[in-house]
Structure formats: C-alpha cells, structure tokens
Amino acid sequence: MDNRSPYIVDAPSVSVIMFKVLLALIPGIALYVYAFGLGVIVNITLASLTVVLTESAILAIRKLPIKPFILDGSGLVTAWLLALSIPSIAPWWIIVLGTLLCIIFGKHVYGGLGYNLFNPAMVGYAILLISFPSIMTHWQIPTNLMENHVEWLDQIKIIMNSHLLSKETIDAMSSATPLDYIKTQLTLNQPLNIIQQNKIFGFLGGSGLELVNLGYLAGGLYLLKDKIISWHLPVSFLTTLFFTALIFNSFSPDTFASPLFHVMSGGSILCAFFIITDPVSAPTTPKGKIYFGVAIALLVFIIRIFGGYPEGIAFAVLFMNIFAPLIDSLTQPRIFGHK
C-alpha cells in the first residue's frame, strides 16, 4: 500500500526550472553573438556536448538512470554558465576540460545533482583560471573595435587551432577586460578618467560587454517574475556591490571606478541572477540569502580592488559556498508559535 499523501502536486519539475534558466540566458547570448561574433556559440555547443557525454558516462558508472538525470537540465546550466564565463576565443580544449572538471569535481564527486557543496560552474572556472591564467585573461575585443574584420569562420578556426596563431594575431583581437585594464593601469599611477578613455570602455561598463549584461539582466528579471529565483540574492548582491563601489568612488573617483561600472562590467549581472542563485550551493533561508548576497558582493569588490585577480566572482562564490550550511543554520526563520 502506498500511503503517500498528499496525493496531489503542483510544481514545475526540476527539468522545467532548469530549462527556464537556460531560456533566460538566451537574450544575453544573442547580444553576445551580436557584439562578439559566433565564438561563444561554439563554446556553448562544445560545453553542452561534453556535459551530456561525460554525465552519461559517470551516471552509467554510478549505475544511476541516465535519462532523468540528463533531462533534469542542471548539467546544461552548468555548461552554459561556464561557456559564458570563459573568453570566447579560448582554445577548444579549455571549455572541454573545464566542463569535465565542473561535472566531475564540481558535481559528481559530491554525489551529483543536489549534493554539491560548490557551484559546479565556478569550480570549473576557478580551476581553469588558476591553471591557465594566460589563456583565461585573453578576452576578445568586440568585433566592431577590431582593426581587421573577422569572419565567423575565423573565430571557429581560432578556437580550434589557436596554437597555430602567432602572438601578434591573438594580441590584435584580444585585450584585457575593462576591469583588468583598470587594475593594471592603476598600478602605473594613471588616473581613472584617462584610463577609461581607452576604446574598450563603453557607456556603462565595457564596450559590448554592457550590452551582454543588459541581456542577462532581462533574463534575470524573467526568472524573478516567473518565481524561478527569489529576489533576495540578486537584490542583496547588486545593491551591496553598488553601494560599496559608491562609497569608495565618492572618496576617490580617480582610483575607484563608478558603482554603475562595477555593476555593469565583469560578471556581476550573470553572477547576481544566474550564479549565486544556484539553489543547491546557496543558503535556503530568506535572511541567509541576503547575507550570502551581501558577503559575496563585498568579497567581489575586495578581490577586484585589492586581490591578485581582476575579477573575483568565482572565488567569492566558492568561498561563500563553504559557509552556506552555516549561514542556513544561523538564520533559521522564526517558526510559527515560537519566540
């Protein structure tokens, strides 16, 4: 006898939730393609293929059913987020290796879906960044800023055969990200307003990048509206980042970039709506989510300004992931009828 009340359910399945997240990434990806060409699509395709193949293999080894766990879509979300986090002209094996690392070390060593302590995409990203710092800091400049026009076929060629290209060619089409550029120029005692005259800066963040971030923002708002994610994380993260930057910026506008720049450059928007909102590795209590978002924003700011890397999202998220269970246990909401 199956005494399984309640007998009725009304919930989107895990697959539906995950595919809605993928759907919400599409405007950002479309704008990415518009500004930077098709490289990112190649990366997403490679990542998706890798994730499906690897995860099937691991599930088979672990003697788990393959179909429901592939169709749950969580692997694809990880793959897409990683593909969007790495430079779009990175050689093909970077994304393949990164996805492998995500799935193996970020997800399945902990027991697979629902058991990972860390955000899998960020695990892969952090390992790549530490291991291949040179490749991981070669960001493509927007196609409209390139001196020689690059056909989309060329981009695929670059991704597939980057080791054949000369350093000069790569340098011509890549640059540091705006965050990185500011950081290095500041060490040379350049004032910020001079630094930001470089062509890679746009009206909000980095040229091209700000468009992509607006796309992510649109997708994020869709997720909020559809109640796939709760408001606590993005709001606490973005407001903290904004106001911290505002405080520093108002003290010394020559050395600290504007709050809007901090919010609209790097991975801030992607982080706010898609990365820290990964339910498995984030706290679950409303208060905990707010603390989590605030702490990550502060860490991101600290790493961006004082740390060894220009962007701190991956490390901030991974670091706070460790504390998610603790935050949860300390922020238990008041239970009905309790003091």
Binding site: N3, L64, P65, K67, P68
Partner: peptide, 14 residues
C-alpha cells in the same frame, strides 16, 4: 510505526 519511505529513482523512473 510509519516505515522509511523508499522511492528508488531507478524503480520509479521505469
């Protein structure tokens, strides 16, 4: 006593 619920994903997925 209520028994430990066993809902094996392999079983239910089939």
């Amino acid at each position: 006593k209520w028994k430990y619920p066993v809902y094996n994903i392999e079983k239910t997925s089939k």
